[in-house]
Amino acid sequence: MKQLTFFTLFFITTSLFSQEFKTPVEYLQYIGKQEENITKETWKYTKTIAHSTSGRKIENTRKNLIKSIQNAKLNILKLKDGYKGDVEFRDIILEYLRVSEIIITEDYSKIIDLQEVSDQSYDFMEAYVKMQDLVNQRMDDEHEKLNLGQKSFALKYNITISEAQSELGKKMKLSNEVFEYRSVLYLIFFKCNVTDSNLSKAILAKDLSAIQQNSSSLASYVEEGLEKIKAIKPFKNDASLINSTKKSLELYKKTTVEQIPVIIDFFMFNTKFEAAKLNIEKKKPADRTKEEVDNFNAMVKDVNVKINNFNNINSKFDQEKNQLTNSWNSTATQFVSKHVPNE
C-alpha cells in the first residue's frame, strides 16, 4: 500500500522560542520546525505500516500524525501578523495543514472502507489501490502549492533555500517507491487469484457454465499478467516479487490446462452416469437387457476412476495454490521490510 508522504524543503533546525521575528529567515526557521515535526511523525507512520502487523500500533501512529498536524496548525495560527504583516505564506501553510488533516482523517477512512471489501473482486481491489493513488496525488498537489508559496516568500525577501532533499525525505521517497512497486505486482497477482477463487466456488457449486467461463477468464488474465511482468524490472536488483508473481501465474495457467479439463470431463460424464443410473433403476431387474447392465457396469467402473482422478487433482492443485498464495504474501512482506528503512 502506498503511503501518504510529506516531503519538506525546510532544512533549518535552529530552535526559536519567540514569535517576534527579526528576519524573514527566522520566520522560515519557525515554520520549518513545525513541518519537521510532521515529517518525523509521518515517517514513523510509514515505518510502522512497513514493519508492523499490529493494527493498534498502526492506528496509534496515525493518531500521533494527526496530532502533530493539529499542533502545527495551532502554532502557525498564533502568527497573526505573519512576518511583519505579511501573512500570505502563513495562509498557504494553514491551508496545507488543513487539507493534510482532512486527508489523514477523512480520506484515510475512505481507504479503510475500500480495504474492507477489496478482496471481494478485482474491481474493488483496483478501486482501493486507485484511491490510495488519488489521495497521494492530492497530497503531492498540496505540497507543491506549499513549495511555490515558500519560493515566492524567499524570492520576495532575497532568501536562498536549499533544494536538496533531507535524509528523512529520501527515506520517505524510497518507501513510496517500494509500496508502488508492490501494488503493481499485487494487482497482477490478485486478478488471477480472485478469478481462481471464483473458479473454485463454481466447482463446489458444480456449475459447469461458470467453471468454463471463469477458466477462460483465468487463462486470459494469466497471459495478460505474464506479458505485463516482462516489462517490470527488479527493484534495486531484487526480483523476488517478480519471480513469486510469475510462479503463481504459471500455476494458474496449469490450473486451466491440467485441472479444469479433468473437472469438466468428470461433471459431464457424471451427468450421463446419473441419467443412466436413473434409467436403469426405473426398470425391474427382469426387464433390464444384458447390454444395458453391461454398459451401466462399465460406466460404474469409469465413474469411480474419474472420481478418484477428480479428487486427486483437486487436492493437488488446492494444496499448491494455497502454498503459493502464502508464499506470495510472505515474499511481499519481506520485500517491503527489506527495502523500507526501519530507522
Rank of each mutant, 00 (worst) to 15 (best):
F335A: 01
N311P: 08
L185T: 00
Y252N: 14
N136A: 08
I66L: 09
I49K: 03
A298I: 00
E224I: 09
I260R: 04
E177T: 07
F89C: 03
S54E: 09
E59W: 13
M172K: 05
V178C: 13
D107R: 15
G32S: 00
E142H: 07
K130E: 05
S15M: 05
S118L: 08
S15C: 11
G55T: 14
L155K: 14
S183C: 01
I92H: 01
K321S: 05
Q3K: 12
Y30Q: 08
Y157F: 15
L97V: 00
K156W: 05
S215M: 03
I232S: 06
K2W: 04
I232Q: 10
N136W: 04
S68M: 12
Y30S: 10
P24K: 13
M125R: 05
G55W: 12
Q165K: 14
F6R: 02
F11S: 06
I111A: 14
I307W: 11
R90I: 00
V129S: 02
M139Q: 07
E116D: 14
N64F: 09
S337M: 13
L185W: 01
L155N: 12
I69H: 02
K191I: 09
I260S: 10
V336Q: 03
I313A: 05
L134N: 15
L174V: 00
L218Y: 12
E274F: 01
S100P: 00
C192R: 06
Q323P: 01
P285F: 02
Q19V: 12
I102Q: 09
F11Y: 00
T325N: 10
V117L: 07
D119R: 15
D318Q: 13
N329M: 11
R288S: 01
L146C: 01
V87Q: 12
E41A: 10
K283P: 05
R138E: 14
Q115Y: 14
I93S: 03
T255P: 06
D207E: 09
S209R: 07
L249I: 15
N312E: 10
N147F: 10
W43M: 12
D318M: 14
K67Y: 13
I242Y: 02
K47S: 03
Y83T: 05
V178K: 02
E343F: 08
S215W: 01
E144G: 04
G225M: 02
A231M: 04
